[in-house]
Structures are given as C-alpha cells and as structure tokens.
Amino acid sequence: MPNIKPISDLRNYTDVLREVRDNNPVYLTRNGRGEYAIVKIDELDRLRATVALMAQLEEGENSAREHGWISADDAEAALGL
C-alpha cells in the first residue's frame, strides 16, 4: 500500500525519512494532489539505469527493424564465441 502524506508533514522530515524504504517510496501531496516522491538514492540509481537500458534496447530494436536481424550464429561469430 502506498505511503502517502501531505507535504506539510515535512516539518518533521526525520519522521518522514524513516519511512522511506527500498521499493517503498513516500509520496507527498500538495493540496490533495500527488506532487513528489521520496526514494532512496540506490533505488533512484536503479530506476535511471533501467530507463537507460530500455532506451538502448529500443535503439537496437529500431536498428534491427530498419537494417534487419542477424542470426544467433552470426552474433556468436561476431563476438568470437
């Protein structure tokens, strides 16, 4: 269940930060609407790495669609396996 708090709870920010866990951010609302999320730095780094990987995979897939796919044997040969 998401941990949602009003932004005014940041007056006691140490209490809010204690509630932040891996895969369990604290969401802050302003005027009843979602505005911010507090996540651990490790989780943020993982999310950024995931986005970067997804972008590279999309680039590779677009290239394969445009220029054609290669066989597994050709890929192994190119890698010297």
Rank of each mutant, 00 (worst) to 15 (best):
Y27N: 05
L10M: 15
R33M: 11
A72P: 00
E61Y: 12
P6S: 10
G68H: 14
G34F: 15
Y36T: 03
R21P: 00
A52Y: 06
Y36P: 03
W69M: 03
D22F: 08
E43Q: 15
T14E: 03
N12D: 10
D74M: 12
I4L: 11
V39Y: 02
L53K: 14
R11I: 14
I41G: 01
V26L: 02
V39A: 01
D22A: 08
V26K: 06
T29C: 08
I41A: 07
I4F: 04
A64W: 04
R33T: 13
L47Y: 09
G34D: 05
R65G: 13
I38K: 02
L81Y: 04
T14P: 00
N3A: 01
A55Q: 08
A52N: 06
E35W: 15
T29I: 10
G80T: 03
H67F: 15
P2F: 12
R48N: 09
L17P: 00
D15W: 02
A37Y: 05
R65M: 15
V39W: 02
E58C: 02
R46I: 13
N23S: 11
Q56N: 13
K5W: 04
L44I: 10
D9V: 14
L57Y: 08
E58T: 13
V51F: 01
R48E: 07
T29P: 01
M54F: 04
E76R: 15
L17M: 01
I7C: 02
E19W: 02
I70R: 07
T50S: 11
A78L: 12
M54K: 12
G80C: 04
W69P: 01
D73L: 13
T29Q: 06
L79D: 00
G60N: 11
I4Q: 05
R65I: 15
L28P: 07
I7V: 14
V26P: 02
V51H: 01
K40W: 02
P25F: 08
N62Q: 11
A78G: 07
S71D: 07
R48P: 00
L28Q: 04
N3Q: 09
T50F: 10
D73K: 15
E43C: 08
I38T: 06
G60P: 00
V20A: 04
I4V: 15
N3D: 08
W69F: 12
N24I: 03
D74Y: 09
R30N: 09
E61P: 00
N12C: 06
P25W: 10
Q56M: 09
L81H: 09
T14H: 01
R11N: 06
A78F: 10
H67M: 14
V20K: 03
E76A: 15
L81N: 01
V16E: 00
E35C: 08
R11W: 04
R48Y: 07
R18H: 03
V39I: 14
S8V: 12
V26I: 11
V39F: 05
P25I: 14
L28H: 06
G60R: 13
I41H: 05
I7H: 02
V26C: 05
R30C: 05
A55R: 14
L53T: 10
I7M: 03
E61G: 04
E61C: 04
I7E: 03
L17Y: 09
W69T: 08
M54E: 09
T14R: 06
N23Q: 10
E61L: 12
R65W: 13
A49S: 12
V39Q: 02
W69C: 03
D42N: 15
D74T: 13
M1Y: 07
A55D: 05
A64E: 10
I70Y: 01
